[in-house]
């Protein structure tokens, strides 16, 4: 059923639906997230969470200075994050700009990493300030190069000026383009939406338009994936599942650098939407530096002491 039978794509139907959403109380949301951050995850639970977090990392490089060499190095790390320990799982995906997709895909395939998907940031990432024609071409290029995950940005200018239907239309068009070939992650850039009410509204606009994932941030704006923002998005995903029986994933990206940060995110997932979402197909963490901290914590659990950072590869 198109748009889950909840809206018909018109501005009137979209506004009507968004009007039914309850508001978010800022203080309440922040204090809930702060309370969940006090969960103490130790021993066996911590070991389990570290491996799960590794498998959820979208290992990312999104720099103007990215080169084929840098991307290939990252691919090696993605497939075998710790070359000394074969029990470490591969990461969730590699995330790159669209001109690096073909290089990443080819290299992954050549090193036994066919199971690691390549995600491309798209639609004039990170600002989203381009014509729809450019956004479509941007996405098409990534798909043609073999991306199976598209991380698109929403038009925050349109959203903030109240033009929700434009945001919706753009997502729906990219959704159609992705078809059954690629997973669509919709980046809300919550740091620019500012309020939790906006985050909740934007989450629903993206889900109604067909997002497979809703993603917090580009990583280029702070604040990014703060615990309360992720909490509000998880609540939206849970409510959407209740309405439609459809499971939308969440990707927390930006600012998650330590194992502690990552485990806090997993606790939020566990206590908000439940353990069904604790899988890389429904929760991802967009990060670059995080992986090494996870690996060091894993070594510490295995060996009983913290390794020198020299024992983990820089990329």
């Amino acid at each position: 059923m198109e748009f889950y039978g909840l809206v018909d794509g018109s501005e009137a139907s979209l506004r009507k639906f968004l009007g039914t959403l309850s508001g978010v109380d800022q203080i309440g949301a922040e204090s809930r997230a702060a309370m969940l951050a006090t969960r103490s995850i130790k021993t066996s639970a911590k070991n389990w969470a570290i491996d799960l977090a590794i498998s959820m990392v979208d290992l990312t490089t999104l720099e103007g200075a990215d080169t084929p060499g840098k991307v290939r190095a990252l691919c090696n790390k993605a497939v075998r994050p710790d070359p000394t320990d074969a029990t470490v799982p591969s990461v969730g995906a590699i995330c790159v700009y669209n001109d690096m997709v073909a290089i990443a895909r080819a290299h992954l395939d050549s090193i036994g990493g066919t199971h690691v998907p390549v995600a491309a940031v798209s639609t004039a990432f990170p600002s989203g300030r381009a014509s729809m024609a450019v956004k479509i071409q941007d996405t098409q290029d990534a798909l043609d190069a073999g991306a199976t995950e598209i991380d698109m940005v929403i038009d925050r200018g349109a959203f903030l000026s109240g033009n929700y239907v434009q945001v919706f239309d753009e997502i729906a068009k990219i959704r159609t383009l992705c078809g059954g070939k690629a997973h669509l992650k919709v980046i809300l850039e919550t740091g620019e939406l500012v309020t939790y009410d906006n985050v909740r509204t934007a989450s629903f606009v993206a889900m109604l338009a067909g997002a497979d994932f809703i993603k917090t941030s580009t990583g280029k704006v702070t604040p990014a994936a703060t615990p309360p923002v992720v909490l509000v998005m998880l609540e939206a995903v849970r409510d959407f599942h209740e309405l439609t029986s459809h499971k939308v994933g969440v990707k927390a990206a930006g600012g998650i650098r330590t194992t502690k940060d990552a485990i806090k995110q997993l606790v939020l997932v566990n206590e908000t939407v439940g353990s069904q979402w604790l899988t890389p197909s429904l929760f991802r963490i967009g990060a670059s530096a995080l992986l090494n901290d996870l690996l060091m914590q894993r070594m510490k659990a295995r060996d009983g002491f913290y390794p020198s950072p020299s024992y983990v590869s820089i990329d």
């Binding site: 309850s22 508001g23 978010v24 309440g28």
Partner: peptide
């Protein structure tokens, strides 16, 4: 009926 639902449940 216009309460912020999730924070209200928490409260």
């Amino acid at each position: 009926d216009d309460a912020p639902v999730d924070e209200c449940v928490e409260g």
